[in-house]
Computed example of a mutant assay.
Amino acid sequence: MTAEPREAKRPGRPRGTSDTRERILVNARELFARNGIDKTSIRSIAAAAGVDSALVHHYFGTKEQLFAAAINIPIDPMTILVPLRDTPLDELGHVLPSILLPLWDSEMGTGLIATMRSLLAGSDISLVRSFLQEVITAEIAPRVDNPPGSGRLRVQFVASQLVGVVMARYIIGLEPFASLPPEQIAKTIAPTLQRYLTADLPLS
């Protein structure tokens, strides 16, 4: 049997076989589901895939970008979360749906909804939970943690509202809600989201 010709080296490109990228994704998906995002490191994913950490960074960039690729989200979550860092606290309830709804309604959003539908119907529900708890909650909860210890639950109330919008508008297609302009929905649910984030709630 003749040996297969070696692939020509590309300057600056880490060496790896043709299935390396998929092997990294498979192991990342498994570790994210088992341990959550926060407790899963790039190094542990690289070790499980039998590659160097630099190769994981080469293919996927940050851990958040790798997670997005692992669950087939066609956007880096931080492109949504980073703008929220500059949003005043008393405007978060309006800005959050104002960012998300146009995104969900876009062509890119079709992929997001398809991914969510697949995850909710399959065995990877822990990945959705990890994303909500360790990415969304970790980003927003410290800002709304008043009284101390309430931030995590406040964000989960917000998540429940937004997941409900996704279910009614995109998955069930509940009319006329499904056909409303995104800005109308954002404006309507904003006061409720803001109340969850900053108002006094019966949290105990």
Rank of each mutant, 00 (worst) to 15 (best):
A159E: 11
R152T: 13
R169K: 15
T137H: 06
E107N: 08
P142I: 10
A159P: 01
F177V: 04
G12V: 00
I140S: 05
R117K: 12
E64P: 02
R21M: 09
E183R: 09
Q194D: 02
Q65D: 13
S118T: 11
A3F: 13
I45Q: 13
T17C: 12
M1P: 09
V95M: 08
V165K: 02
P176C: 08
G50T: 03
G173L: 10
K9D: 02
V135R: 04
L101S: 01
R143W: 06
T40P: 03
P97A: 04
K187F: 09
A186F: 08
T20L: 13
L180D: 13
T192N: 13
G149N: 06
L119F: 12
L174V: 12
L92F: 05
E183P: 01
D124E: 14
L31T: 00
A69K: 05
I45M: 12
G149L: 11
F131D: 01
P176L: 08
I37K: 06
I73P: 00
G12S: 00
G36L: 12
D200P: 06
A70S: 15
G93A: 04
K63F: 11
N27I: 08
A68L: 11
S106C: 09
V56S: 01
E139M: 08
V163R: 04
S204W: 10
